[in-house]
Deep mutational scan, measured.
Amino acid sequence: CHSECLGNCSQPDDPTKCVACRNFYLDGRCVETCPPPYYHFQDWRCVNFSFCQDLHHKCKNSRRQGCHQYVIHNNKCIPECPSGYTMNSSNLLCTPCLGPCPKVCHLLEGEKTIDSVTSAQELRGCTVINGSLIINIRGGNNLAAELEANLGLIEEISGYLKIRRSYALVSLSFFRKLRLIRGETLEIGNYSFYALDNQNLRQLWDWSKHNLTITQGKLFFHYNPKLCLSEIHKMEEVSGTKGRQERNDIALKTNGDQASCENELLKFSYIRTSFDKILLRWEPYWPPDFRDLLGFMLFYKEAPYQNVTEFDGQDACGSNSWTVVDIDPPLRSNDPKSQNHPGWLMRGLKPWTQYAIFVKTLVTFSDERRTYGAKSDIIYVQTDATNPSVPLDPISVSNSSSQIILKWKPPSDPNGNITHYLVFWERQAEDSELFELDYCLKGLKLPSRTWSPPFESEDSQKHNQSEYEDSAGECCSCPKTDSQILKELEESSFRKTFEDYLHNVVFVPRKT
């Protein structure tokens, strides 16, 4: 048989008469490798580009789960590009990614509803959504962080984005990388972005840091009482949809009607710091009717980097990364020049730590249904340095008659930039024990000054392991946590139920 035959053949030295091919099969003959313009397919066939392209389009058009959109890589027609490569849609070739590779997620039936953290986790790592997304989240724990972890990498949506009755959302900033909504599939009414009845939605994105392009379709905003109209108009300008909307697409009466839409800028007039305090004062603000001013709200939190936005980490279910302080308005003076500047002394802060701070007014709604208010920009203030805590785990070892090696770990709280350490030492008198000992005694162990690591005695271990207080009263049991108490109650309830079950099964009433 021919060298490319495997198993047997019907005619000697003829690659077209093989029972099976050793390498690849091409047009009725066995070959060692697939010549151009053919590609290896499933490690035994040679196919042309049209064959591989037909497989790709067949799966793409069917949208069946589990099928493969075949691509070409290293002269092979394979189910998908290997790690580190992405497909070129024009020629199906796998090309190296520039940075992290995109991950295209194809949605069944063309859309997916995100109504819980669990459903959001199914899209973790996706960068391109081939379909439409509907966000409908009523509640949950730590929602802002969970949504950002699972949806934060999405850069492109081919269909539309719909935010509907998501009472738990305060902001859409968890879509931190969303840059493009194509609108290839539109919501009824030709809408590519749809926001309806979101009672706590206050911000779409921080438009000073976020760009969003909507290729096709219109915007729809109705019944978002805490979303200011200025935020919607800003989205029109940034996304390129200005002029597409009709009169009733953006409701003037049901958007922002319960919001404090600040239209003035508060400026800080005085800032002073110490290692654990920050004193702030800002310019006074009074609405047209000074009785509408209820006070100020001061927001602050630790910020290692200057990239904080107002609604980071917030949701309507209680999660809030900001510390909020309510401040009463100052006494009002008739003389504008003698107006008191409101302020606040922030206490209990960490030394040498940068804080993000902003302040906003708290006002009631005027009778004319106009909203007044003022808010400052987010500023960054760093507390002063102070003395560091003591170095940890000092170790001293003498390696000769004239040297001592000293080692330690950095302090747990540096409280500033540590530039150097101060080492103090003092000579001590020799131990009298060394002169009084009889060095001729056998088995004498000389006193040693070398360091030995501390260890816990058996008594201390027994005390720590004991669940009861000892007789001397030195140790006591740790208080039980809520989960331990709940577990004990469940076990007790189970024992009672099981005992009742045994009584009912074992003891049967005697027939009379």
Score class of each variant (00 low, 15 high):
residue 279 L to D: 07
residue 293 L to P: 01
residue 380 Y to R: 10
residue 269 S to A: 08
residue 195 A to P: 01
residue 360 K to T: 02
residue 270 Y to T: 07
residue 290 F to Y: 14
residue 192 S to C: 10
residue 324 V to Q: 06
residue 133 L to S: 02
residue 282 W to V: 01
residue 104 V to M: 06
residue 184 E to M: 03
residue 207 W to Q: 07
residue 167 Y to H: 03
residue 288 P to E: 10
residue 363 V to L: 11
residue 333 S to T: 09
residue 202 R to L: 06
residue 392 L to S: 12
residue 106 H to C: 00
residue 285 Y to W: 12
residue 136 N to M: 00
residue 172 L to N: 02
residue 204 L to D: 03
residue 222 H to I: 06
residue 249 D to S: 06
residue 401 S to Q: 11
residue 126 C to N: 02
residue 181 I to S: 03
residue 407 K to A: 01
residue 376 S to K: 04
residue 257 D to S: 05
residue 312 D to I: 14
residue 144 A to Y: 07
residue 128 V to H: 06
residue 373 G to Y: 01
residue 162 K to W: 14
residue 151 L to K: 01
residue 186 L to G: 12
residue 196 L to S: 08
residue 229 L to V: 10
residue 315 D to R: 15
residue 337 K to N: 15
residue 267 K to F: 13
residue 289 D to L: 01
residue 220 F to M: 15
residue 318 G to S: 15
residue 342 P to Q: 07
residue 202 R to Y: 05
residue 224 N to T: 06
residue 358 F to T: 05
residue 180 L to T: 12
residue 168 A to I: 08
residue 239 S to P: 03
residue 232 I to L: 13
residue 255 N to G: 02
residue 382 Q to R: 07
residue 313 G to Y: 09
residue 161 L to E: 01
residue 311 F to W: 15
residue 362 L to N: 02
residue 206 D to K: 14
residue 149 A to F: 12
residue 200 N to K: 14
residue 371 T to A: 07
residue 182 R to Q: 09
residue 268 F to W: 11
residue 128 V to C: 07
residue 155 E to F: 02
residue 289 D to Y: 03
residue 341 H to E: 12
residue 185 T to H: 14
residue 224 N to M: 10
residue 379 I to T: 14
residue 337 K to W: 10
residue 321 S to H: 10
residue 411 P to N: 03
residue 221 F to A: 12
residue 145 A to G: 09
residue 197 D to S: 05
residue 248 N to V: 12
residue 389 S to I: 04
residue 121 Q to L: 02
residue 254 T to C: 09
residue 173 S to G: 08
residue 329 P to F: 05
residue 203 Q to F: 11
residue 147 L to Q: 04
residue 321 S to Q: 14
residue 361 T to K: 00
residue 121 Q to E: 04
residue 253 K to A: 13
residue 121 Q to K: 04
residue 333 S to F: 04
residue 150 N to S: 06
residue 214 I to R: 08
residue 376 S to T: 08
residue 255 N to Y: 02
residue 121 Q to N: 03
residue 137 I to N: 07
residue 259 A to Q: 04
residue 354 Q to H: 10
residue 181 I to M: 04
residue 359 V to T: 05
residue 349 L to V: 05
residue 288 P to M: 08
residue 258 Q to D: 01
residue 326 D to P: 09
residue 154 I to H: 03
residue 377 D to T: 08
residue 386 T to S: 08
residue 229 L to A: 13
residue 191 Y to T: 12
residue 297 M to C: 07
residue 103 K to G: 13
residue 259 A to N: 01
residue 333 S to K: 13
residue 387 N to G: 13
residue 198 N to E: 02
residue 317 C to K: 05
residue 149 A to C: 10
residue 356 A to E: 06
residue 194 Y to H: 14
residue 221 F to L: 09
residue 328 D to N: 13
residue 319 S to K: 09
residue 343 G to V: 06
residue 337 K to A: 11
residue 379 I to F: 05
residue 255 N to S: 07
residue 352 W to K: 09
residue 256 G to M: 02
residue 119 S to Y: 07
residue 310 E to T: 07
residue 253 K to M: 15
residue 382 Q to K: 09
residue 254 T to Q: 09
residue 160 Y to T: 08
residue 103 K to F: 03
residue 230 S to Y: 00
residue 373 G to D: 02
residue 167 Y to M: 08
residue 315 D to P: 14
residue 267 K to W: 11
residue 383 T to G: 01
residue 226 K to D: 03
residue 163 I to A: 03
residue 303 A to F: 14
residue 360 K to N: 03
residue 204 L to F: 14
residue 169 L to V: 15
residue 275 F to S: 13
residue 265 L to A: 09
residue 161 L to K: 00
residue 124 R to Y: 00
residue 145 A to W: 05
residue 338 S to Q: 12
residue 294 L to T: 05
residue 362 L to H: 12
residue 312 D to A: 13
residue 211 N to I: 08
residue 148 E to C: 08
residue 242 K to Y: 06
residue 247 R to C: 11
residue 244 R to Q: 13
residue 129 I to M: 03
residue 288 P to Y: 14
residue 350 K to T: 09
residue 335 D to H: 09
residue 278 I to V: 14
residue 291 R to I: 02
residue 364 T to S: 11
residue 393 D to Q: 13
residue 163 I to M: 11
residue 265 L to R: 10
residue 125 G to D: 03
residue 257 D to Q: 09
residue 209 K to D: 03
residue 313 G to Q: 11
residue 248 N to W: 10
residue 203 Q to A: 05
residue 373 G to I: 00
residue 383 T to S: 08
residue 329 P to T: 09
residue 107 L to Q: 10
residue 120 A to N: 01
residue 251 A to V: 08
residue 243 G to A: 07
residue 161 L to W: 02
residue 213 T to R: 09
residue 273 T to Q: 14
residue 294 L to W: 02
residue 107 L to I: 08
residue 119 S to W: 02
residue 322 W to T: 03
residue 142 N to T: 13
residue 318 G to L: 13
residue 130 N to E: 07
residue 407 K to W: 14
residue 323 T to L: 14
residue 320 N to Y: 13
residue 213 T to Y: 06
residue 321 S to K: 14
residue 112 K to H: 15
residue 385 A to K: 06
residue 331 L to S: 14
residue 192 S to P: 13
residue 155 E to D: 08
residue 259 A to M: 05
residue 245 Q to R: 13
residue 244 R to G: 09
residue 308 V to K: 09
residue 350 K to R: 14
residue 403 Q to G: 11
residue 138 R to S: 04
residue 373 G to A: 02
residue 188 I to Q: 10
residue 365 F to P: 13
residue 349 L to H: 00
residue 293 L to D: 01
residue 158 S to F: 14
residue 208 S to M: 09
residue 343 G to E: 13
residue 394 P to M: 05
residue 384 D to F: 09
residue 248 N to S: 10
residue 138 R to Q: 08
residue 169 L to C: 14
residue 324 V to M: 07
residue 211 N to F: 05
residue 113 T to Q: 15
residue 274 S to I: 02
residue 171 S to R: 11
residue 315 D to Q: 14
residue 338 S to V: 13
residue 379 I to M: 15
residue 409 K to P: 10
residue 274 S to G: 10
residue 341 H to R: 10
residue 124 R to H: 14
residue 160 Y to S: 09
residue 394 P to W: 03
residue 367 D to S: 06
residue 104 V to E: 04
residue 244 R to Y: 12
residue 119 S to G: 05
residue 324 V to K: 02
residue 351 P to W: 06
residue 325 V to L: 14
residue 187 E to R: 09
residue 152 G to C: 10
residue 294 L to K: 15
residue 320 N to V: 04
residue 399 N to M: 14
residue 215 T to N: 11
residue 404 I to N: 01
residue 290 F to K: 00
residue 315 D to Y: 07
residue 307 N to G: 03
residue 193 F to S: 01
residue 220 F to W: 05
residue 176 R to I: 10
residue 186 L to D: 14
residue 119 S to V: 01
residue 389 S to L: 06
residue 159 G to M: 00
residue 243 G to K: 14
residue 267 K to A: 10
residue 202 R to G: 05
residue 188 I to G: 08
residue 399 N to A: 09
residue 358 F to W: 10
residue 163 I to R: 01
residue 197 D to W: 11
residue 238 V to I: 13
residue 351 P to M: 03
residue 118 T to L: 02
residue 352 W to Q: 15
residue 323 T to A: 14
residue 146 E to W: 08
residue 330 P to M: 04
residue 147 L to A: 06
residue 108 L to I: 08
residue 397 V to R: 14
residue 307 N to R: 10
residue 229 L to F: 15
residue 145 A to T: 04
residue 242 K to C: 13
residue 147 L to W: 04
residue 274 S to M: 11
residue 104 V to C: 05
residue 178 L to Q: 02
residue 170 V to Y: 04
residue 387 N to D: 05
residue 249 D to V: 12
residue 222 H to L: 09
residue 206 D to L: 07
residue 348 G to Y: 03
residue 257 D to H: 11
residue 368 E to I: 12
residue 249 D to R: 05
residue 359 V to I: 12
residue 302 E to F: 12
residue 155 E to N: 08
residue 155 E to S: 10
residue 161 L to P: 02
residue 263 N to I: 08
residue 222 H to E: 13
residue 255 N to A: 02
residue 327 I to S: 05
residue 190 N to K: 15
residue 223 Y to A: 06
residue 374 A to S: 02
residue 141 N to R: 06
residue 254 T to A: 06
residue 291 R to Q: 05
residue 398 S to N: 02
residue 333 S to C: 15
residue 245 Q to S: 12
residue 183 G to Y: 05
residue 266 L to D: 01
residue 154 I to R: 01
residue 232 I to G: 05
residue 363 V to I: 09
residue 294 L to Q: 05
residue 317 C to H: 15
residue 385 A to P: 09
residue 128 V to Y: 07
residue 301 K to H: 06
residue 161 L to N: 01
residue 332 R to P: 11
residue 188 I to N: 03
residue 133 L to W: 03
residue 207 W to T: 04
residue 380 Y to V: 12
residue 153 L to P: 12
residue 146 E to P: 08
residue 284 P to F: 04
residue 218 K to S: 00
residue 176 R to K: 13
residue 292 D to H: 04
